[in-house]
């Protein structure tokens, strides 16, 4: 099991926000990064190709029961929930949508909080709904680090606002600050 995990949730405006954060991380980033972006169910996963071009880390679509490895960004496949298992592996599920979404950020965050506890960093970015709020609360409760994008700069503020309301201990950061915070992990 890796020593920690970064989990990110994004919705409307998410691709741009992620483009601010992910490309700067070095190829040998010491943690895995797992990402849920709300995308229409019947689309091919264009996100993987897009970010593979932009990023120095390895980028791939999450596979069922795949062990998490550092230096890798995993995107949830369209139309599947993505979960983290206690032994540090990924799992997929076709359970009903949560918050009208599959994949749902809450499903990822809640399972990741169980698996990684204090070693988890959860980040809620721009979006037009409240997915991720309950999940971020679970991350806080498990002693993890909770971060929300500063709603003032988010393309759509609803999602980070809902997450910050649900999770009072969350750190509010701009995208630049989030990128710097993640980069710090490298030197620690």
């Amino acid at each position: 099991m890796t020593q920690g995990l970064v989990a990110i949730g994004a919705s409307a405006g998410g691709v741009q926000a992620l483009s601010h954060i992910l490309p700067d991380l070095p190829a040998d980033y010491p943690l895995p990064v797992v990402v849920v972006v709300h995308i229409p169910p019947r689309k091919d996963n264009a996100l993987v190709a897009l970010f593979d071009r932009k990023c120095r880390m390895r980028v791939k679509e999450a596979e069922d029961k795949e062990p998490l490895t550092s230096g890798t960004v995993y995107f949830a496949p369209p139309d599947y929930h993505l979960l983290v298992e206690a032994e540090g592996a990924l799992a997929l599920s076709t359970e009903e949508p949560v918050n009208h979404s599959r994949p749902a950020i809450d499903v990822l965050f809640e399972s990741a909080a169980d698996a990684y506890g204090a070693a988890l960093t959860g980040i809620v970015l721009t979006g037009a709904n409240n997915d991720g709020a309950a999940g971020l609360q679970a991350i806080c409760a498990a002693g993890g680090t909770a971060i929300v994008q500063n709603p003032d700069e988010a393309e759509v503020a609803a999602m980070p606002v809902a997450a910050a309301d649900a999770c009072r201990g969350a750190l509010v950061m701009t995208l630049d600050e989030i990128a710097a915070h993640l980069a710090k992990t490298v030197t620690q």
Partner: peptide, 9 residues
């Protein structure tokens, strides 16, 4: 069964 999903349900 995969535990994370069983726990949710």
């Amino acid at each position: 069964y995969a535990r994370a999903s069983i726990k949710r349900r």
